[in-house]
Amino acid sequence: MDWVWTHLDLISSETLAHIGLSVPPIVIGFLVSIPLGYWASRSAVARSVLLTIGNVLYTIPALALVVLVPVVLGLSLLNPGNVVVALTLYAVAIMVRSAADAFASVSADVRQSATALGYSAAQRFFRVELPLAGPVLLAGIRVVSVSTISLVTIGALVGIPSLGSFFTDGFQRAFLLEAAVGFVLVLVLAAVFDVLLTVLGRVLLPWNRGLRPTAAARRVIAQQLPPIGAR
């Protein structure tokens, strides 16, 4: 354990780097998926096209994507932006389906009722449909968060520092403690993010408090736990 105490600086800097690489894909992925998911929930054609693109994106191996992105965008191979772009694509791939399900879960009765009351289209979206899609959106973003935090480690293979660097370094030097530290910290980070998102959900969706997740939300959680081991 001495290694841990002598390397606290490194551990904290790699943890910060890991967070820095994780947050942008989660946030951008969420924001991009909202309009796409809404579109997919309104049109069967849009839904099938967008979800197919999402599925195809999701099947590209992460390592291949991290190498492809700089080639396509003309960035340096060591630019952390590569990881951010690649993981944003994955986030969108997962989140569009959640968002489409989320908006589809808003009951037609409530939408019509809001229209009948005199909500304009924009008011209806922001004040009725978006909040009511909240529980399923939350379920989706929790999956994205866990998935992103674990995938950030891939960057270590192409030399972009994160907690994943402890894996690569630990394995190369056959120093299992270092790899284990990386492993545990990734798990802790994923758990912390999940708790933060859950708390945020409770604050933003007070009407949903104490209620069990809706059937739609449970389906999203069940379907979309990403096959991390498969990659």
Binding site: D109, V110, Q112, A116, V128, L132, N208
Partner: peptide, 9 residues
């Protein structure tokens, strides 16, 4: 309307 159409949130 039927089923009240109240906003659940």
């Amino acid at each position: 309307m039927q089923n009240s159409g109240l906003l659940p949130h």
